[in-house]
Amino acid sequence: MAFVLQMLEMGKRESWFHSVNPTAKLIWWVCMIIVPIMITNPFALIIMTVCIWVMAFQSGIAKQMYKFLIVTYPVMIGFIVILWPFFYAATPDQHYLFNWSFLHFSLEGFIYALAMGLRIVLSLTACTFFVMTTDLMDLASSLGEFMQNKLHISYMYPLMVMSSFKFLPELGGDYFNIIESFKSRAMDMDTGSVMERLKKYVPVAIPLIDSMLRKAQNIAISLELKAFDTNNKSRTFYKHYPFTIRDLFFIFLGAVAIVVCVVLNSLNWGKVDIFL
């Protein structure tokens, strides 16, 4: 939880990438989600991941990103790389490292699993980069402006998203206070089996839900007191997020990645199968 809050804090820093329009970054991120769906070529995936890391260095978040991903990479990828080869369809022409009854582990299976893992690596890296270079409040505001002015969608929906983002740090703060108050009553939250620990967290949920409900009620009242009307389609925005050349360039980077995938696929170089 602390680390998630820390990640969200990183979004408030200043750099070239931080100052890109949040909606542009969201579009770029969507492109980076589509890329690993389109291709499985390990080299292409590695190159794109490295590019994101270079961008992370430039924006000054590489250290924090490393601290997060060094824990997340192995967990997310480990299972795939270890388990996938066992489910890789067995054919007689494969190079088997282990083959017994229904259990088989071949070099081809391993390469395939590695490629699947690299897909996760790319999307995870892109997602972390996006979160760490984007202030979620800015993202919600810019999306709100975009949705109301361009898509004519009621401001209520972006407000709902914005409010949940806004309360994330508060929720985190309350969570830590509640945990501390339980520890202060001699509750040992850090020992025991996984089930025992989970059981200890049940009472924590009650004051947390109570606190969230109170906050929700307060914000609803304060919105009404400030004449909030969901049907008002002409409301103005305090901050504006116009698209600049830089933002378009950033979207262009995402589009280039998609085009590269299309080209690789059309040349039959997009899939890991060429190495098998």
Binding site: D174, I178, S184, A186, M187, D188, V204, P207, S211, R214
Partner: peptide, 23 residues
């Protein structure tokens, strides 16, 4: 020493009572 052990002789009352009430 963990807090759960120190809590035996140091009682800490939080500012917001609603942060600890659950029962």
């Amino acid at each position: 020493h963990p807090t759960s052990e120190l809590a035996r002789f140091v009682g800490y009352v939080f500012q917001n009572p609603d942060h600890q009430i659950f029962a």
